[in-house]
């Protein structure tokens, strides 16, 4: 069985910190876990920290975009934080622009952005 990415709850925000390169199965598990947790906890915001990721392929890129759409349907804002410059450049070269996904430079700014959007991460 492959590892799962932990989904942590802080107040009304779910924090997903991806610490290792993702295999396809992990990506799909994460998508399942996250949507279930949003419904269970009634979270209003999701922060996905990818600062440890050195490689983001098109599959993971699409997962990020899909997650944002799914969370929005469930009433939560998703913010992807900590993308590395090299990763951003790779995604651009792949033709992905993560339209519709909110981003922030780091976790702190991501939480601030959520607060500004009206989802108080108390």
């Amino acid at each position: 069985m492959s590892d799962r990415v932990p989904v942590l709850k802080i107040g009304r925000v779910l924090l997903v910190s991806i610490q290792q390169d993702l295999e396809d199965q992990m990506v799909m598990d994460l998508q399942d876990d996250l949507s279930r947790r949003i419904v269970d906890t009634g979270a209003k915001g999701v922060v996905i920290d990818i600062s440890a990721l050195e490689i983001v392929d098109s599959f993971v890129g699409r997962m990020l975009a899909d997650n944002a759409s799914v969370s929005r349907l469930l009433g939560a804002e998703t913010i992807v934080v900590g993308m590395r410059p090299a990763v951003a450049m790779t995604l651009v070269e792949l033709g992905l622009s993560l339209k519709g996904v909110r981003t922030a430079l780091n976790l702190e700014r991501g939480l601030k952005l959520l607060r500004r959007l009206g989802t108080d991460p108390a």
Binding site: V80, V81, M83, P85, A88, M89, L91, V92, E93, S97, L98, V101, R102, T103, A104, L105, N106, R109, G110
Partner: peptide
């Protein structure tokens, strides 16, 4: 490309 990359980083 540059603008999009910067935007993706937040």
């Amino acid at each position: 490309k540059t603008v999009v990359a910067a935007r993706m980083m937040g």
